[in-house]
Amino acid sequence: MRLLNRTAGRLSRHRRGPLAGLVVLLLGLLLTGGLYTALSPAQAETQASETEQVAEGKKLFLASCAFCHGKNGEGIATVREGYQVGPSLVGVGAAAVHFQVDTGRMPMANSAQQAPKKPVVFNDEEIAALAAYVASLGPGPAIPDEQDYSIEGLSEEEREEAIARGGQIFLTNCTACHNFNGAGGALPRGGYAPSLDGVEPVHIYEAMLTGPQQMPNFSNGNLGPEEKRDVIAYLESLKAAPEYGGFALGGLGPVSEGLFAWIVGIGGLVVAAVWIASHTTRSTRSKADAS
């Protein structure tokens, strides 16, 4: 199955290449074949494990996802405006499924403006099966590999460059929604860009690759795989670095700073003023007692 995913991943990476059309056609045929095998009782030996995974995925899909996304992942049309039952999953790719299910967003509990993160429902194998099934519906980005987003292999100097470059890419492309600290921000109509604190590198990569919800899709044409890697390296470096200035106050910027200035600063000083004003009397009283 990994193989299939990887093929699809490469494909999307080179989608704009001259041979892309041909490859897509070939892959489409391959997938139709795969799907056919998955559905038909007769099984070829070599494809056994993959088709089994897809079949397993389909079973899970029918049980947990189909009532919103349709029996074949074709999506269910909007019932009324602003209300989405479930979009089509054809061509969203394994990366989208892995991102949505592994962060607990899917299966969505009830239709809302935005699917919130929840405790993950499926184990790794089940997620892989679901991803394989959805990937089999149409070509899309594959789940990225560790080496896609890790800077382990680079020299010290290259790493530093990667981090600095990633910081600039992050500030250019992401902070408008996610805030300079990755602390998150509000979007119109109740939407929000979530905090990036504690999000795993693979999910960051997938988020960029698949553009969930109101987040734009940073396809590899927009933001190359290395640039994605650098963004992740930057975010990881922020996590590893100490908070140089002390408590970060939620990393929300001037609003939380203002609150602290009032509550801790003015609040504390007013308490001090009350304390000082109430203490003179005692000194004079003792003087009065002494005389």
Partner: peptide, 28 residues
């Protein structure tokens, strides 16, 4: 000043008219 971060300019990075961040507020 010693314990609470204020205006962590290193996280904002240098000014560049093409960039913007969520939570761009003025001081209170």
């Amino acid at each position: 000043g010693g314990l609470l971060t204020i205006n962590p300019v290193w996280k904002f990075g240098p000014y560049d008219p093409t960039k913007v961040t969520a939570g761009s507020q003025p001081d209170w």
